[in-house]
Design a binder for these strands. Structure first.
Lengths: 196, 196, 196, 196
DNA sequence: TATGAATGAGTATTCATTCAT
DNA sequence: CATGAATGAATACTCATTCAT
C-alpha cells in the first residue's frame, strides 16, 4: 500500500475518532485501532500527534473545503443579484455542511482544543477573519448594486457565520435536523436585515 | 473556615484556571494551587473532577445567571412593547456577558469538553432547549401583540442565541470588543426580521 | 515517612541500579522497584529523570565528596612536607574510592552518559578543571618549598587524576584489587617524577 | 556494489555517528541515513545492532590498530635502548591517536556502553589485559638490559595506559590539545620512574 | 478538616527489527 | 540486493484519586 494512501487512511481514522469519541476519547491508540494498524505506524507517517492533527486540518481545509467551494461557487456566480448570491451562499454552505457531517464534527473537536506548544489556543478569532472578511464582501456588493442598505457588513458577516456554525453543530448532532427550513429562515432573516 | 466558603473558593479557583489556562491547562493540582490548598482537599469537597466541574456549571448557572436574570428582568418587564422587551433582552444579555468575562471564559472551556462517563457530550443541543424556548416566547409575545410578524420563533431564538454566544467568545478574547455597537446591530437585525 | 528520607531512598536506589545494571539497565521502573515504591512516586519527588540524575550527582558530590574531603584533608594538612602531602592525597583518595565503590560505580555510568537537553555531553573536560587545578597546586607547593623540581604541574595533575580514575574502575570492578599496592606504586611514580 | 564494500560503508557511517552524536544520538536510522541507505539494509548485512557495534570494534581493532601497530613498530624496533623503545611507544601511540580521532571518539562511546545480553559490561578490565601485558613487557625488557630499575611492571603499564587514554579523551574533545607536549611530559614521568 | 505522600492507569514517543515486494 | 512499510516492546511522564496521619 502506497504511502499516500496509508496517510489518508490514518487521517480518515482520526476524523472518525474525533467525530465519534471527541477530542478526549481520541488517542493515537484509538486512531490506530480504527485504521486497523499498529500504534507505531502512525509515528512512522506523522511526526507526532500535533503533526497528525495539523494534517487533519489541512486535509479538511484543502480537500474538503476546496471541493465545497468549487461546488457552491458556480451557484453564487450564476446568481445575477446580490440577493441571489446571498441565498446561494447560505444554501450552499448549509448543504455542504450537511454533506460533510463527519469532517465538521472532527473540526468542532479540533478547533477549540488545538493549542500551540506554549499552550495558547491555536485558532482564535483572528483565524476566522479571512472567512468573515470574505462574507462581508457579499454584503458590500449588495450595497454597491443598490440592493442592500448601507450597514455594518462586518457585523452581518460575523452574525451570519455564527448562525452557520450553529446549524453545523445541530446538523452534526441531529441527523434529522431540518436544514432546508433553517436555511430558508436564515436567508429571510438576513435579507430582511439588509434589503432597501 | 466553613465548608461552604471552602467549596466556593475552590469553584472560584477552578473558574480562574479554566479562564486563564483553558481546559487542558487546568488540572486539579493547578486549581488547588490557585485556591491555596492541598490537592487532597478538593477530593474531600468534591467527589471527583467531574463533580467539581458540574458544580462549577451549577454555580455559574444559579448564582451568576440568576443574578444576571434578576438584573435584566426588571428592564424587560419595564418595557411596554415587544420591541422594547427584545431590546432590553439583547442589551441586558450582552451587558451581563461583558460583566462576567471570567465565568463566560470558563463556560466556553467547559461546555464543549464535558462528557458523560460513557464518552457522550454532556451538554448537547438539548441542554440549551430551555433557554431557546424562553427566548422564543419573547418573539411569540410580539406576534401576539401584533407588533411582530408571524414567523418561526424557535429559529429566531436559536439564531439570536448563536449571535449572543458569538459575542461572548469575542468579548472574552478581546477586551476592547465593541459590545454596544454589536448589541445595536443585533437589535436592528432581529427587529428588521420580525417587525410587521 | 518524611519527604527528605524518601528522596534519599530513591537516590540510593538509583545509585544501586546504576552501579549494578549500568546506565542502560537503569530505568525509572527499575529504580522504583529497587526502592520498593511505585513509578509515579519518583515523578512526585523529582521533576523527571534528568532531575533525578542531577540530584544523584549533587548528592554524591556534596554528601560523599564533602565527607571524603573532610576525611583526608586533615592528613594532608598534617603532613609537613610536600611529599607527605602528596602521599596523603593519593592514599586518601584511593582509600575514599575503595570505601565508596557503589557511588563511584554510579558516577562512572552517569558522567559519560549525561547530556544536556540539546544532546551535548554535560560533563566534558572542562568539568574536571577545578579538580585538576586543585591537584596542580599540590605540585606547585612542592616546587615552592624546593622539594620538587620545576615542571608541568598541570600535566602531572592530569596524569595523576587519570591514574586515580583507573584505580577507581578497577576497584569498582574487582573487589580484590590491591589498593594499597597500587597506591604505593603511584606515590613512588609521581615522587620520582618530581623530586629534586 | 559488493557486499564487503557495503559493510565497510555502514561501519564507517556508524563510526561517524558515534563520534559526532555519541552513543545516545546514534540510532540505526541515523547510521542508515549517514550511509545513504535504507534502514532495512543494515539488518541485511548485520544480525542486529550489537553485531554491528561488535563489527565496528573489530574493524577498528584489526584494520586501524593493525595499521597503527605496523606504523610504530618499526620505530620501536629501531630503537636500541629500552628508553628509546619506551619513547617510541609513547610517541607512536599518541601520534596514532591524534591521527585517528574519529575512530577513537567512536571507541570512547562504544566501550563503556556495550553490554552483553545479560546486562554485564562487555569490555571490562580483562579485555585490556593483552594490551597491558604487552606494555609491561617493555618495562621488563628495560629491567633485563639493566637500564630500568626492578619494579612493578604491570602497574607501570596500567598507569601508562590510563595516561594514554586520558590523552585520547582530550585529543578527541579538543583539536588544539598539545599532543607533543603531553607526550614529552609522559616520557619524562615514566622514565624518571624506572631509570636506574 | 486538612495534608501530602503514594498509587496506578493512561498516553505519546522512540527504535530495533521484520518482511513482503 | 535493496527498499521502506509495518510492528511491538520499552520508557518517561501526567494526573486524577486514595488514604494514613
Amino acid at each position: 500500500m502506497t504511502q499516500q494512501v496509508r496517510r489518508e487512511r490514518i487521517l480518515g481514522a482520526a476524523i472518525d475518532c474525533l467525530a465519534v469519541s471527541g477530542w478526549h476519547g481520541t488517542t493515537l491508540a484509538a486512531i490506530a485501532q480504527e485504521a486497523g494498524i499498529s500504534r507505531g505506524l502512525i509515528s512512522y507517517h506523522f511526526a507526532g500527534r500535533d503533526d497528525l492533527y495539523s494534517a487533519v486540518l489541512e486535509s479538511v481545509a484543502t480537500e474538503v473545503f476546496a471541493a465545497g467551494s468549487a461546488e457552491m461557487q458556480p451557484d453564487i456566480d450564476a446568481a445575477t443579484t446580490a440577493e441571489g448570491k446571498l441565498r446561494a451562499y447560505i444554501t450552499g454552505n448549509l448543504r455542504f455542511i450537511a454533506a460533510h457531517r463527519r469532517e465538521m464534527a472532527a473540526l468542532n473537536e479540533l478547533m477549540p482544543n488545538l493549542r500551540t506548544p506554549e499552550g495558547k489556543p491555536r485558532f482564535g478569532s483572528e483565524a476566522e477573519e479571512p472567512i468573515i472578511a470574505g462574507t462581508a464582501l457579499l454584503f458590500e456588493y449588495g450595497v454597491s448594486t443598490g440592493e442592500f442598505r448601507q450597514g455594518d457588513s462586518r457585523f452581518l458577516a460575523l452574525a451570519l457565520r455564527r448562525c452557520m456554525d450553529g446549524a453545523a453543530v445541530r446538523i452534526v448532532a441531529d441527523e434529522t435536523f431540518d436544514v432546508e427550513g433553517y436555511g430558508a429562515s436564515l436567508e429571510q432573516l438576513f435579507l430582511d436585515g439588509v434589503r432597501v
